[in-house]
Simulated assay, not measured.
Amino acid sequence: MADAPETLDALQARHRKEQRDLVSRITQKKKQASKKTRKGVNDECERLERELKERQARELVLHNGDTPDEAPALSEEEHEAYEGNAGQVNEAAKAVEALSIASATPEQPAPEQNGSRKKPNRAKARLARRAAEQDALVAQAKEEAANMPDLREQERTRMEQHFGKYGVEVKEIRPDGHCLYAAVADQMETRGLGLKPRIQVKIQEGEKLPDYKRVRYAAADLIESNPDDFVGFMEEPLGVYLQKIRETGEWGGHMELMALAKSYGVKINVLHSDGRVDKIEPGADVQDKDAKEIWLGYYRHSHGLGEHYNSLRKVS
Rank of each mutant, 00 (worst) to 15 (best):
residue 4 A to K: 15
residue 4 A to M: 07
residue 5 P to A: 11
residue 9 D to C: 01
residue 11 L to F: 02
residue 11 L to A: 07
residue 18 E to R: 13
residue 19 Q to V: 06
residue 19 Q to E: 13
residue 21 D to F: 06
residue 26 I to P: 02
residue 28 Q to T: 12
residue 30 K to F: 01
residue 31 K to Q: 14
residue 33 A to I: 02
residue 36 K to Y: 09
residue 38 R to Y: 12
residue 38 R to A: 15
residue 42 N to P: 02
residue 44 E to V: 00
residue 49 E to L: 10
residue 51 E to V: 07
residue 56 Q to V: 09
residue 57 A to V: 13
residue 58 R to Q: 11
residue 59 E to R: 10
residue 63 H to K: 05
residue 73 A to E: 11
residue 74 L to I: 03
residue 77 E to I: 07
residue 78 E to C: 07
residue 85 N to R: 10
residue 86 A to W: 09
residue 90 N to C: 14
residue 91 E to L: 06
residue 99 L to V: 12
residue 121 N to E: 12
residue 125 A to E: 10
residue 128 A to E: 14
residue 132 A to K: 11
residue 133 E to M: 04
residue 135 D to V: 08
residue 140 Q to D: 15
residue 143 E to N: 09
residue 145 A to S: 13
residue 146 A to G: 15
residue 147 N to Y: 06
residue 149 P to H: 00
residue 150 D to I: 07
residue 154 Q to L: 15
residue 159 M to T: 06
residue 165 K to T: 13
residue 170 V to R: 15
residue 171 K to D: 09
residue 173 I to Q: 00
residue 173 I to Y: 04
residue 182 A to F: 01
residue 190 T to I: 04
residue 191 R to G: 10
residue 198 R to D: 07
residue 214 R to Q: 14
residue 214 R to E: 11
residue 215 V to D: 01
residue 218 A to I: 00
residue 219 A to E: 04
residue 226 N to A: 10
residue 231 V to G: 01
residue 235 E to S: 13
residue 239 G to Q: 15
residue 242 L to F: 07
residue 242 L to V: 04
residue 252 G to M: 01
residue 254 H to E: 14
residue 256 E to H: 01
residue 258 M to P: 02
residue 259 A to D: 03
residue 260 L to S: 05
residue 262 K to D: 03
residue 263 S to V: 05
residue 264 Y to L: 09
residue 264 Y to C: 00
residue 266 V to I: 12
residue 269 N to M: 08
residue 271 L to A: 05
residue 274 D to Y: 08
residue 281 E to T: 06
residue 282 P to F: 10
residue 284 A to L: 10
residue 285 D to A: 08
residue 287 Q to C: 04
residue 289 K to I: 09
residue 294 I to C: 01
residue 298 Y to K: 03
residue 301 H to A: 11
residue 301 H to Y: 13
residue 301 H to F: 15
residue 302 S to C: 14
residue 304 G to W: 06
residue 305 L to V: 13
residue 310 N to V: 04
residue 311 S to N: 01
residue 312 L to D: 00
residue 314 K to A: 08
